[in-house]
Design a protein around this nucleic acid. Structure first.
Length: 713
DNA sequence: CTTGCTACTCTTTTT
DNA sequence: GAGTAGCAAG
């Protein structure tokens, strides 16, 4: 079996798979078969090197990747052995470590995992407890600051205070952590950070782990953050068999704390690091590959890998400019139909990719209009839906009665006469007594109007807690739905109500599938599912997904829509060169998903915030090699003043943006700080005007006409 | 305590 | 333009 597997590899891949023990970094370009190499390496360790499965840890980027790897492995080396390999995402592996060694980590093993929604609520109550104004200190910004700190393993105590604002962050962070702790909850970042702390603080656990894991393998290494790096580096600290696979050019999660410098760090920490490069691409045509390289080579500070393929040139890259987002969507639909009719592809071969989830709407509507099936990754995520979160919150308070965020969510859903006030009193009473709300209810500590309703709720809650270990998740689910009369609450016979109930039933299926697994395992898995995990492969329909979600996937035909300045690259990165490089890598990731056909689309006019807006073509379009294109790219866009020219030429009837503005595209202007510049566009705001100006320093800034003191020259 | 209305933010990207 | 937070009335 194994010999077969190795025979199917090319020399470079084979070299990577059979590399000697010790620290290894495989730099693998897109489509070079890195997942295959990783899987083969594990199989090789099991079969040839006779390593016991439980002594191998393999970290993948998504649960889906772990599942696929396990399936492939089981085919190669036999069912049980593949399953005994410790495999999963960083988050799921950390959750497992923390539950197993909960006492050493100072945790209760039934801790709840809070998602970003829950996190925001905790931030809000922290702000509330500290008497801070959430208008002045935006909860989302606070959450972001806390998350960034945690990803860098910075505790509240270690947080540097440089400004008044950072002093506030520190206090909120402290309070936030305290609330998580009383709720017996961890957020996503805690899973990583607490695992690192556990290994640092407990010699016994550390040595146990270090001894056990003879081999540690990490996929998508370029997107690991500091705590993830520390974690694997520590676990591999004894045997030093750290096998990392990654591609710096595909690093697209910097905003989430990923630090591509981990590649450098790996080299510094392991002078004997063996580096293997995989530069043959097996996925794409030469045309697609050349296009991708033309894009990525504009990034400075990169070590050039020259990718090559033995596939032929294939069709040219189709570049089209449509008049609106709706036209763009229609073009996608029409082209998909054409491809299918001409038998150039089947529906399932096709993907439509975009920068922001908001863009999916126009495409989705076009699919619906055409009566065509489609698959949508992300957007309104299933587990973010109110009804799904409600039912999960019920299960969460049963599993972990200290979870006050979940309690607040369901204590009055459906309405049972326990309002915000009653909940606040309950929370207060419990906190004053140093007990959980659950215990406070049991001890009948409550007084006041809602006492009866509270007592009834307490009875139900106690009943479910008693049932927790007697019933499996599916039966408990049904019991809670019945007792809480949730169905009557949600299913009001409107279309929306039916939809919501259908979602509850879908969740029920997941609960039933859990079988006799403990409730805490079920909740754990549900908290850590990722967007692309639910991608149904057996359904033959085009997929819609963000460029980020497309990582690691491949399709015969790829449409990338919204190639406009402000969308891709996103407006938030226009000012920051590092972020701009990441946008470029995102574009690169998108292009390299395509095996045969690539369509790059943009719209002249796109409505955001209900307002129609002219969009300049993406700078990335200008970097495409013209000889490889079917279609023309208009030059000079973002930074130039001929906005007016193509506006007249191509969009005859766009009345909406001819609102009276003081500044017009092309106007020469002067600003006290930035000097002279040219107006790109101007948008009428309520009682001001937002002017986009490209100054002589080459940078484009958005200014308020009213406040900035911008003058016409 | 609930319901319904108004005002206001908001869009990157996700485990 | 939409979803939600906050507020007033029932």
């Amino acid at each position: 079996m194994t010999t077969n597997l190795l025979d199917n590899l090319n020399p470079a891949q084979r070299q990577a798979v059979e590399v000697k023990d010790g620290p290894v970094l495989v730099i693998a370009g897109p489509g070079s078969g890195k997942t295959r190499v990783l899987t083969s390496r594990v199989a090789y360790l099991l079969e040839v090197r006779q390593v016991f499965p439980y002594r191998i840890m393999a970290v993948t980027f998504t649960n889906k990747a772990a599942r696929e790897m396990r399936e492939r492995l089981n085919k190669i080396v036999g069912a049980s052995r593949g399953s005994d390999v410790m495999m999963g995402t960083f988050h799921s592996i950390c959750a497992r470590i923390l539950r197993r060694d909960a006492p050493a980590a100072g945790l209760d093993r039934d801790f709840t995992i809070y998602d970003s929604d829950d996190q925001l609520k905790v931030v809000k109550s922290a702000l509330d407890a500290l008497n801070l104004d959430d208008k002045k200190y935006k909860p989302a910004a606070m959450q972001n600051a806390i998350s960034t700190a945690k990803n860098e393993l910075i505790t509240p105590q270690d947080l540097k205070i440089e400004t008044y604002y950072s002093e506030i962050v520190k206090r909120v962070y402290e309070k936030y952590n305290a609330i998580l702790r009383t709720n017996n909850a961890l957020d996503f970042d805690d899973l990583l950070m607490e695992s690192v702390r556990l290994l640092q603080n407990s010699q016994a656990v550390r040595e146990k782990m270090q001894e056990r894991y003879l081999h540690v393998l990490v996929d998508e290494f370029q997107d690991t953050n500091i705590s993830q790096y520390n974690l694997v580096n520590m676990i591999a600290g004894r045997h030093r068999n750290l096998f990392c696979v990654g591609d710096p050019d595909q690093s697209i999660y910097k905003w989430r704390g990923a630090d591509y410098r981990n590649v450098k760090r790996l080299q510094t920490d392991h002078p004997d690091l063996e580096v293997v490069a995989l530069d043959q691409n097996y996925r794409s045509t030469q045309t697609i590959l050349d296009t991708a390289m033309a894009i990525i080579k504009k990034n400075p500070n990169r070590t050039h890998i020259k990718l090559f393929t033995e596939k032929g040139p294939g069709p040219k890259i189709v570049v089209r400019e449509l008049s609106s987002a709706d036209d763009e969507a229609q073009y996608v639909i029409d082209t998909i139909n054409e491809l299918i009719n001409q038998k150039a592809a089947i529906a399932g071969d096709i993907a439509v990719m975009y920068r922001t989830n908001a863009q999916s709407r126009a495409i989705e509507e076009a699919f619906v209009r055409a009566g065509m099936p489609y698959k949508l990754v992300g957007a309104t995520r299933f587990y973010a839906r109110k009804e799904v979160k409600d039912v999960l919150a019920y299960l969460r308070i049963v599993n972990n009665p200290a979870d006050s965020v979940s309690l607040q969510r369901v204590i009055n859903v459906p309405a049972r006469g326990i309002g915000d006030k009653s909940f606040a009193t309950l929370d207060e009473t419990a906190r004053a007594a140093g007990i959980t709300a659950f215990e406070a209810l049991k001890q009948n500590k409550m007084t006041g109007r809602s006492i009866k309703a509270l007592a009834e709720f307490a009875t139900l809650w106690q009943k479910w807690v008693n049932l927790r270990d007697e019933m499996n998740v599916g039966r408990l689910f049904d019991q809670i739905i019945t007792d809480s009369e949730y169905r009557e609450y949600i299913n009001d016979n409107t279309e929306e109500g039916n939809d919501r109930w259908a979602n509850v039933l879908e969740l029920r299926e997941v609960a039933l599938a859990a079988g006799d697994a403990p409730l805490s395992d079920f909740l754990n898995d549900v908290a850590l599912v990722s967007e692309s995990d639910n991608l149904e492969e057996t359904v033959n329909a085009p997929v819609m997904l963000t460029l980020h979600a497309a990582k690691g996937l491949e399709f015969r035909c790829v449409f990338i829509v919204g190639l406009e300045e402000g969308i891709l690259p996103h407006s938030r990165s226009l000012e920051n060169p590092e972020e701009m490089e990441e946008e470029r890598r995102l574009m690169y990731v998108g292009i390299t998903r395509a095996k045969e056909r690539l369509y790059l689309l943009r719209a002249f006019q796109r409505s955001t915030w209900g307002r129609s807006d002219i969009a300049a073509p993406s700078r990335f379009l200008e970097d495409l090699p013209p000889a490889l294109l079917d279609g023309k790219v208009r030059k000079n866009s973002a930074v130039l003043s001929n906005v007016t020219a193509w506006r007249v030429e191509t969009t005859p009837a766009l009345g909406s943006f001819n609102r009276a503005t003081e500044f017009k595209p092309g106007d020469s202007v002067y600003h006290q700080k930035f000097g002279e510049g040219i107006v790109q566009r101007s948008i009428r705001q309520r009682d001001d005007e937002e002017v986009e100006v490209t100054f002589n320093d080459g940078r484009t800034r958005r200014l308020s006409a009213g406040i900035s003191g911008l003058k016409k020259l």
